[in-house]
């Protein structure tokens, strides 16, 4: 098991290093001077020079990469040009919105999808199965930002149950802050839940066709017992893969959804940074999100090993 995990850990670390080189190179392949790009065409030469100095652009490239990468490791991302504050402050201020949102959406989608998928697989071919898979099929096709608009229209504009957007901050109390995240989380969760429900069903049906399911049935175990105790755990393996991939989509989804709801999260930060050409912020947030995806993928590998003894124990 340790060999497997060490290997996955090494792969994750390697991916992270290469990803950092890719992100860093983005600044380097920029046509022209990044400092000038950030300041716009009307900036004076002197201001540009100041910024170049500040960004360390006058140093050799390797040194600058090591400097930057070293900074990342110590959570020192540099200083935002537009906000004139350390990037880490901006990030920590925003992450308390994005992270709860992503987790809420993930929990919500899993909580809906797994029971629906199991329910459908149990009743394969029935009307209930056809209806729920039809609904899932439509759910997959609905873009999350459009669904968000509909939710806003129904629950904020029409029913006035929740705010249409914005975030009062966690200082305003747990409930108001939570309330502001409900619609965004639902909007994010729908598509993921639809995908996950379909995958759960088909993974279960695959497993239910296996020989060992017949062995368990020949042992006298009733159908539902076999489904929950034998099939589901084996079906977890493809499910975990999808959950890992979905996290990346969820990250991308937060960028859009935060913009729909005007939530001051990382997605909104990166988007504003683009329009303001604050490349240091863009770079840092992209790197942070990429790192999150890589860490989540490692966690998925870890859970494979927990679910599947063939990875845990050598023959």
């Amino acid at each position: 098991m340790t060999t497997y995990l060490l290997k996955r850990l090494a792969i994750g670390a390697l991916t992270l290093v290469v990803a950092s080189i890719v992100v860093f190179s983005v600044l380097e392949i920029l046509p022209g001077d990044p400092a000038r790009l950030m300041l716009g065409l009307n900036a004076s030469e002197a201001t540009v020079q100041v910024l170049r100095e500040q960004m360390g652009l006058n140093q050799p490239i390797l040194l600058r990469y090591l400097d930057w990468a070293g900074g990342l490791l110590t959570l020192d991302f540099g200083k935002s040009y537009t906000y004139s504050v350390p990037v880490i402050d901006l990030i920590s201020e925003r992450v308390v919105v994005s992270l709860p949102l992503a987790i809420m959406a993930l929990l919500l989608s899993t909580a809906i999808a797994i029971p629906v998928g199991v329910f459908s697989a149990q009743r394969r071919g029935s009307t209930a199965d056809t209806l729920s898979m039809g609904a899932a099929q439509i759910g997959v096709a609905i873009p999350n930002f459009w669904f968000a608009l509909i939710l806003i229209y129904i629950f904020a504009v029409w029913l006035r149950l929740v705010p249409a957007g914005g975030f009062p901050g966690w200082n305003a109390g747990l409930w108001p802050a939570f309330k502001a995240l409900i619609l965004p989380a639902v909007a994010l969760a729908l598509q993921q839940a639809a995908i996950l429900a379909r995958v759960t069903r088909s993974a279960l049906l695959d497993v239910l066709g296996e020989d060992y399911i017949r062995t368990a049935r020949a042992k006298g175990m009733p159908r539902n017992y076999v489904l929950w105790r034998h099939a589901l755990r084996n079906a977890m393996i493809p499910l975990l893969t999808i959950l890992g991939l979905q996290f990346a989509f969820l990250i991308a989804g937060t960028i859009i959804i935060e913009n729909v709801f005007y939530l001051p999260g990382l997605g909104r930060l990166i988007f504003q940074a683009i329009t303001q050409r604050d490349l240091i912020v863009v770079e840092s947030v992209v790197m942070l999100l990429v790192a999150t995806v890589i860490v989540v993928n490692f966690l998925v590998d870890l859970s494979y090993a927990i679910v599947d003894p063939r990875l845990r124990i050598r023959q």
Partner: peptide, 21 residues
């Protein structure tokens, strides 16, 4: 491993980076 690397950049994130440049 190359696949892992690209998968770490969701399409929207790469789009954001490309647009930034």
């Amino acid at each position: 491993r190359f696949n892992d690397l690209v998968f770490a950049f969701p399409a929207l994130l790469s789009a954001v980076m490309i647009t930034a440049i």
